[in-house]
């Protein structure tokens, strides 16, 4: 392999500098005054909105890796040289550019949408990069490629590893109540091996809810769904953006999303808290919607302080497992 020409070395050096600057700009700045929703989506300041949001298909390092941004300048070069190319290349470029713009405008807040064109972008980048090196008669060895991609992978995943380590467990604002589990069948082995039977029975008591035939969610969190199933059928549950309850229990519900304060019913979508005080909300839930319970998560509650206020004033915590909470309306 020939040594890198001076201008290429400058280009690589400059690129690394840009990466570092943009990285720190995106990852290590948080606008505390912005809403929780914007913070979680990583679009809580103008530079983050532009780089993580509108240009997120190229610059959302955290999810899409730290090299995909290189496709952006290559794309600009490709567009500049488009004149004189075949009609099929022009057609594909038009489709790709319009798709990028569509996702930039309509999907800037959602990593999943930004992932839509990712395989195409990556393929374009690799092909353009190989062409770029070939034009300059530089032949990267397989070892360098493998090491490069390997290091990049380690780096990409390390970002998440470090973040996970720094993550604080969610604060529990409500005191959990002990969950009453269904009684397990007892084993009677007589007095002689009574101690063994006790041990077995204790184990059964603990594991019984996990063994019963009931589609459950992630291990120990399934108890709460079993409990919800045993509630009186005619009393509905207000479900705060958690379709889990409707899918895994036989309990009828009413869908609600506290972040937008929107109920979703046969009548359409309309606000619950707006223009009602807490007592009126309680009466509306019980009398009009036949809801006696509310299912939510501590995390979701934080999206709407007014909802938290209502829960504190008009509801009791009936059950809590991890982040999941079932409230009983007083």
């Amino acid at each position: 392999m020939m040594s890198l020409p001076k201008n290429i070395r400058f280009l690589i050096g400059g690129a690394i500098a840009v990466v570092l600057i943009v990285y720190s700009l995106i990852l290590f700045s948080t606008d505390e005054s912005a809403s929780m929703y914007l913070n979680e989506r990583g679009i809580d300041s103008l530079p983050k909105l532009v780089l993580n949001g509108f240009l997120g298909q190229f610059f959302k390092y955290k999810y899409l890796g730290n090299l995909v941004w290189v496709a952006f300048p290559f794309l600009l070069i490709h567009l500049a040289k488009l004149k004189g190319k075949s009609s099929s290349i022009k057609a594909f470029t038009l489709i790709y550019v319009l798709s990028v713009l569509l996702i930039a405008v309509q999907g800037y807040y959602n990593t999943r949408y930004q992932l839509s064109l990712f395989p195409v972008t990556i393929s374009f980048l690799v092909v353009a990069l190989f062409d770029f090196l070939k034009e300059r008669n530089i032949k990267p060895s397989a070892t360098i490629i493998i090491l490069g991609v390997g290091l990049m992978t380690v780096f990409n995943y390390t970002v998440f590893g470090v973040e996970k380590l720094l993550e604080n467990p969610p604060e529990q604002t409500f005191k959990p109540k002990p969950v009453r589990l269904p009684k397990a069948p007892q084993i009677n082995l007589g007095k002689r091996i009574g101690a063994l039977a006790d041990t077995l029975n204790n184990k059964l008591d603990r594991t019984w809810p996990l063994l019963i035939e009931h589609d459950g969610i992630e291990g120990d969190r399934r108890h709460i769904f079993y409990q919800i199933d045993s509630l009186p059928f005619e009393e509905r549950i207000l479900v705060n953006n958690q379709p889990l309850v409707l899918y895994y229990t036989n309990k009828p519900g009413v869908m609600y999303w506290c972040r937008k304060d929107l109920l979703s019913t046969q009548r359409g979508r309309y606000p619950l808290l707006e223009s009602r005080d807490n007592l009126e909300v309680r009466n509306y839930l019980i009398d009009s919607l036949q809801c006696k319970y509310i299912f939510s998560t501590l995390h979701y509650n934080e999206y709407n302080p007014r909802f938290v206020e209502f829960l504190a004033e008009q509801c009791d915590t009936a059950l809590q497992e991890g982040d999941y909470v079932l409230y009983e309306i007083r």
Partner: peptide
């Protein structure tokens, strides 16, 4: 290389 880059991203 393209496949390796795809799998190097957390989103994929």
């Amino acid at each position: 290389v393209s496949l390796a880059m795809l799998f190097s991203s957390y989103a994929f």
